[in-house]
Each structure stands twice: as structure tokens, then as C-alpha cells.
Simulated scan of single mutants.
Amino acid sequence: MENPEFIDIDLQPGHAIRRLHQIAVGIFMQEMGELSVTPLQYGALQVVHNQPGIDQRTLARAIALDASTTGGVVDRLEARGWLERRTAPEDRRARQLVLTPAGEQALAQAVPAMLRAQTQILAPLTPRQQAEFMRLVQVLVTQNNALSRAPAEAPSRPTAG
């Protein structure tokens, strides 16, 4: 097997995506400031807010995490007093997740910071490039979803009309 003489790692899509992820997380954490909400915690808070009573397994599929990582995220949010696990009335073994009033307040504080982070991440692109970038990212994520270690389950979205 031949050994390539030189491969420019900066031109490899996987490396560029990893770097962009590092940058995106750095910007996100900088915008969050003292609230110190991570991107994963924000995602969990937003999904539980959107779907009160969601179970942990469904949350994991919604934010594309494995069960143990999701459990850790839920544990940390619960320790901060932002989320509660409640026994499901129809299945005493199942636990439903709901935001506490403090969790709703934390999410309300986090949303403007999250939106600023998204704007800053895309700022180097023109509006047209931003739309095209997001379209292409969605194609890559959707088409490669099944190859993930924790595939996301597409959320049901309300339909217009």
C-alpha cells in the first residue's frame, strides 16, 4: 500500500467540521457567560420545554445522544434545579422530564445568548451563503443520520394549514 507523501488535513471535511464544532462551542460558551449552559444542556432544556413530560429515551433520540450521555446531562440539569424527573402516571417505571420554574427562567436567559452565538458563527458569510450553508449542512446531517452512533429521530413538527 502506498503512503501518500502529503495530505493537507485542513482540506479534509471531517477535520474542518471538528474545528468548526470547536469554534461553535467556544462562541456558545462565551455568549452564555456566567449562566454556563453547554450546547447539550441547552438542547435538552429546549426540547423538554417544547415537549413537557418527554421521557429520557425520547429526549436522547431528539437531541441525538446515547442514553448514558443523556442521563448525565439530565443529572446535571436536575442538580442545578432546572429539571425534574416525575413518575409517569401510565407507567410507574417511566420517568417524565419537566422544567422547573428555575429551569424555565434559565432557558429564557439562555435563548438570547444562543441566538447571538448562532449569529456570530455565521457572521463571516453573506445572508445568501448562510442560507446555502444551512441547507447543505441539513443535507449532510439528514443523509448521514443513520451512520451516527446516536441517530436523531426527526421531531414531529406542526404542519401549516
Rank of each mutant, 00 (worst) to 15 (best):
A67F: 13
R157Q: 07
E153V: 14
R86Y: 04
H21C: 12
L40V: 07
P155M: 04
L140G: 12
R157E: 09
A79F: 03
E31Q: 15
D55S: 05
Q120V: 02
V137D: 03
H15F: 14
R19Y: 13
R18A: 14
R149E: 10
V137S: 07
Q51L: 09
L40Y: 08
M1P: 07
L40A: 11
Q109Y: 01
H21A: 15
Q22H: 10
L77V: 05
V98F: 14
D66L: 01
P39R: 11
M32P: 00
V73H: 06
G53P: 05
Q56Y: 03
E84H: 09
F133W: 11
M114C: 03
F133D: 01
P101W: 09
L97H: 03
A67S: 09
A154Q: 13
D8T: 10
P13F: 12
P101M: 07
L147G: 02
L20T: 12
A123D: 12
V37A: 00
A67M: 13
A16F: 10
R93Y: 06
E90G: 00
A24P: 07
Q22S: 12
Q143C: 05
Q138V: 07
G81I: 10
T159D: 01
A24N: 07
V98I: 12
G71E: 00
D75H: 03
Q46A: 15
T119A: 15
